[in-house]
Simulated assay, not measured.
Amino acid sequence: MTMQPILDGTTTFLKHLGLGEEPFGVHYSDSKPENAFGPKKGTPISRELEDRGELDMQEVMKSFTCVMGSVWLARKKHGAAFISTEEYGCIGGVYYCSMMKPHLRFIEHYVSTGFEGTPVHGERYMPNPDAMREFMLRVNPREAPGKYCIFKPLSQFTDDEKPEFVIFFARPEVLSGLFTHTVFTTGDMECVVSPFGAGCTNMLGWPLYYKERDMEKAVIGGFDPSARKFMKADELTFTVPLSLYEKMLATLPESMFTHETAWKNVRKKVTRSAKAWGEEE
């Protein structure tokens, strides 16, 4: 399928959902889009440098840029966001977006209970460093197929650079439509998952995990407290692999959206929600 049927189907899908913002796609490329939002080049990082005690984390953090923050800017400006091995911004994001392996040990402490006797008290998202290490090794993103990991609006893709995944940003009523239609398309009651992870882990890291295992799964994310400042109130992410998304578009004519179902009542709530947030269709 070329991109045009996907874009046409997306327009129809968004009308059914009552969602005013088009989804983003993500892909890998050796070229960075012009005027893209992303991190500045940071000091070199690697597990090898960390193990030798040659990594100054204070220096590393000076160039901190959250993947979700870059995507947030791209959403507002209708542009692209990126991350690369050298322009990494976040030691977690560069791993989850498959731009660097292995992960730095520092993050095992930073996301859990920190380092005793230091200012790094930890985010307390995991109970201990061992649990966080197990999580990092479980996600275990593949090696990136390009120099840059790029996020941009779906309409900016061409036939020569199709997205691997499609990412929606939506509130619960719209999410109920995305969730239910995914189940309708697949017939699989477990086709939508929401494992623990950072904002970018669920937006890309976990979707990559399932794709590498030939599992067509949609992933709900956005529960990471650190990423909430880069998302609208009550908003979450919903990522689907392109292969599944194409199937979802193909089943729209037979879906709840085009028949007499309870979706009509939900759709009215979507409209009320848009008005309440000043985002009228």
Rank of each mutant, 00 (worst) to 15 (best):
F168Q: 08
G146V: 00
D30Y: 08
G205K: 15
E50S: 10
N140H: 08
D160R: 15
W72N: 15
A227C: 12
E21N: 03
L17C: 07
R171M: 01
P141F: 12
Y148I: 02
L55C: 09
T261Q: 03
N35Y: 06
P195V: 05
L154P: 06
E164S: 11
E235K: 07
S29W: 09
M3R: 11
S176Q: 04
V174A: 00
K40P: 05
R228W: 05
K62V: 13
M136C: 11
L17H: 00
S273R: 08
S155K: 13
P119M: 02
L249F: 08
S194T: 14
P172D: 05
K152A: 00
I6M: 05
Y88L: 10
L19F: 04
Y209W: 15
F115V: 14
C90F: 01
A80K: 07
K152L: 08
T271E: 15
T12N: 04
G20Q: 14
K15M: 06
D214W: 07
R142T: 14
R171H: 07
G69C: 09
L104W: 01
G199D: 08
E134W: 10
S63W: 06
Y28L: 08
G278A: 03
E48Y: 06
E281Y: 09
S255Y: 00
A131Y: 06
K147Q: 13
D51Q: 13
I83Q: 09
L175M: 10
R52H: 12
E21P: 04
A218C: 15
V120I: 15
E86I: 09
N265I: 00
F169H: 09
K15Y: 04
T201Y: 01
S273C: 01
E279F: 01
S176H: 03
E134F: 11
R138A: 11
K40M: 12
E173W: 11
R171E: 04
M248V: 07
I167W: 07
G25E: 04
S243D: 13
T261P: 00
D160K: 15
T180K: 03
G79C: 04
V174R: 02
F257G: 00
P39T: 08
W263L: 11
L252T: 04
R75C: 01
V71L: 12
A131R: 10
